[in-house]
Design a protein around this nucleic acid. Structure first.
Lengths: 226, 226
DNA sequence: AGTTATTTCAAACAGTCGTTTAAAAGTCAA
DNA sequence: TTGACTTTTAAACGACTGTTTGAAATAACT
């Protein structure tokens, strides 16, 4: 494999072009149709390179798929996590409302474009229902840290006598709503008959925050300020 | 195709055996691994019949997949819907709590076995993210009717001045939580480290009802009785 | 019984799959 | 320019895909 001149990662554009194009197109296509529905030929012809390049750069198709997660998906998820973390860490004693608001904004609007976001969510939803090796990566490196972070934030503000399994349920429910409103866009559009546009998204975040906040506060005493 | 003697559907066991076995195994395998990951040979060898039977009885693989939805998935979904409907229709002026409780029980416990339930949810989650023709069937025949029913029930008990788009959001959120707690079982088990057993499920329903109820009631005045 | 229609089957079809090969092209230092 | 390397390429590999074929088996009716 790539021995080349040095350990530099971004220096030599020529060398990485093909590899990078492959990753980009592979992500796009895997997100759209899934691992099994996409062939190596689909990817290489989209990346305008030879078919053997996949095996040269990634040794096989599955490893290309995993590399999409390693080098693209997880860094992007971290981007959203950090958008949430820096916001919430800049506050002193954030209220549940502030925490949930920051979470919903980071993961429903987020620092990503709509297109990036779409691919990003499609990939993870596939993994959630069809776990491969990639799921291990995602769970360990993004899902669990986010869950821990939320738990830490909310157990401080929630009733101290109630920091039990119920908080886990609440966090999972908030998780669930946010995830759901992303992964089931086609269903939502179809069932309601309304488009998933910017206006819809803005009202959506408002709703998610309110719904989650009150849902959560039903257990403890931290009635929302608003 | 099957001209046979008459229009009877259940009379002749011999004739339908192969066809029925194919549908049964096809559903199981499609649910487990998805349409593209499963081959016709996988299905026919699981159903212990010849490969050409798929094309004889269903003309092609995709139509077998669609027939799984037509003759198995949708009737089963109707079973759950009716469990919900009969319960809720037997009440006079049901409260939001009663409605949500009936919904959660019907769709989280439901009249199905755990195994049936698992396959059922796996199939629909695949469709939600990889819509095929089957999605049209499901949306028109089960999703939309359930949504309409919920809307009708809740707009009566909610504040009359608020029967707007917010109610749609609320219903979708309740939808979402229930769906989420089914489709992301592997993630939940992994992130929390706890099993998805009977005890977990019981506390889960309790949680979903409470969370949804208070989330909903944040908007209108129908504070829960409990 | 004989006749007809229905269902099953083994075998082969043409096409696609992921992967490998070995040669050609490109790159860069000496 | 030479020589050692990395990268790209066309072509082919065997295995597997969904589907078709035509004959054999089974069932149903006269």
């Amino acid at each position: 494999m790539s021995k080349k001149t040095s350990d530099a990662q971004n220096s030599d554009t020529t060398v990485k072009q093909t590899r990078e194009r492959l990753l980009e197109k592979a992500e796009m296509l895997f997100a759209q149709k899934g691992f099994h529905a996409i062939g190596v030929r689909d990817i290489t012809s989209a990346a305008r390179c030879n078919m053997a390049s996949v095996n040269y750069h990634f040794s096989n198709k599955m490893n290309l798929y995993l590399e999409v997660f390693r080098s693209r998906w997880i860094p992007r998820e971290r981007l959203m996590y950090e958008a949430f973390e820096t916001k919430v860490d800049s506050m002193t004693d954030p209220t549940p409302e502030q925490i949930i608001q920051a979470l919903a904004k980071a993961y429903l609007e987020g620092p990503l474009t709509d297109e990036e976001f779409g691919r990003h969510r499609q990939l993870i939803v596939r993994e959630l229902n069809n776990p491969t090796e990639a799921f291990e990566l995602v769970a360990d490196q993004t899902l669990r840290p986010l869950f821990k972070k939320l738990y830490g934030l909310l157990e401080n503000v929630a009733g101290d006598n109630l920091n039990d399994a119920n908080l886990s349920f609440d966090i999972m429910s908030i998780f669930g709503i946010i995830l759901y409103f992303n992964y089931s866009r086609p269903m939502i559009s179809r069932v309601t008959g309304k488009p998933y546009d910017a206006d819809f998204k803005a009202r959506l975040i408002e709703h998610v925050v309110r719904f989650s906040l009150y849902g959560m506060s039903s257990r403890s005493m931290c009635a929302p300020a608003s």
